[in-house]
Design a protein around this nucleic acid. Structure first.
Lengths: 149, 149
DNA sequence: TGTAAATATATGTAATAACATTATATGTTG
DNA sequence: CAACATATAATGTTATTACATATATTTACA
């Protein structure tokens, strides 16, 4: 549906409509995904961190700031998000012996098992934009990159 | 910058990249705007509600649920957002005599004065997508509408 | 070496969001 | 009209976020 009708708004111009449309669409997509993750007892940020940990588990153990760099929101309170995951037994947290300021964070077996059960989440993510053709998604990515350039 | 480099991520496919790119870009745009509004002591939601109230002030007074329908996030806790605006003297809140379940919310003179001082906010909004041409914004809007269709 | 600066993480706190529940009012239907 | 359903807003509660500050460690360098 056109954004004008969905939020019953009045727009000054195409740029104004664009920014509202972006926000509204992302809110809506995010809501779907949050509900999905909730079934597994995770927040979006917790899920993202688990995935990064799995992605790097064969390499060196990673620090809090390493995780932070990979978060969509650079202000994320990774320390406390990891805390939550630790409480659930999904990650291990040890002092880094070579730099005792840092912590080595690793995903546990329990964490890996949970992610495995959640593989449908990834499928879900890839279907959120299913109404677009590949070319359209490519064009969307180009436009988004340009917005931030 | 390309999204791959900004979040140091690895994407399964164009669709996956698209959803991450959307989220990341909106987060970034939103952050800019939040910092901007903060100077005036308002949150995004408070600002949006004030603008709707100004937009409709010549018509009938509006209810909490009317405001809710016009929020980008349909789950917004409008009751308490209006509370904050009321505490600041920016809105008036009266019982609706024809349906006492409802409240009539109106923007005050003080609220209007604040919005007038904030007109640069609207200019700011219209520049957030300045890197795109009008045609590109139009295409962006088309793609976003299609995502939600 | 001693001291200041920088780095990595954790904590405190107040504001906000998410979700369920409650309170009041109105609408509907037998 | 009584009983129940629905609508509207407010409240309670818990978790999360944002931002500032604290603590511990390492680095730089006079």
């Amino acid at each position: 549906m056109k954004i004008e009708n969905e939020i019953k708004g009045r727009f000054r111009n195409e740029y104004h409509k664009g920014i509202i449309n972006l926000t509204y669409t992302v809110n809506q997509l995010n809501y779907q995904f949050v509900q999905f993750l909730k079934k597994h007892g995770l927040t979006t940020q917790q899920y993202n961190i688990l995935r990064v940990l799995r992605g790097f588990r064969s390499e060196n153990p990673v620090s809090i700031s390493f995780l932070k760099e990979r978060m969509l929101d650079k202000n994320s309170d990774v320390s406390r998000i990891v805390d939550k995951l630790y409480d659930k037994g999904l990650v291990e947290r040890k002092e880094n012996p070579t730099d005792r300021r840092q912590k080595n964070i690793e995903i546990t077996e329990k964490g890996l098992t949970l992610l495995a059960r959640m593989d449908d989440c990834e499928k879900k993510i890839d279907t959120l934009l299913r109404n677009l053709t590949v070319e359209e998604v490519r064009e969307l990515n180009r436009l988004l990159d340009k917005i931030r350039s």
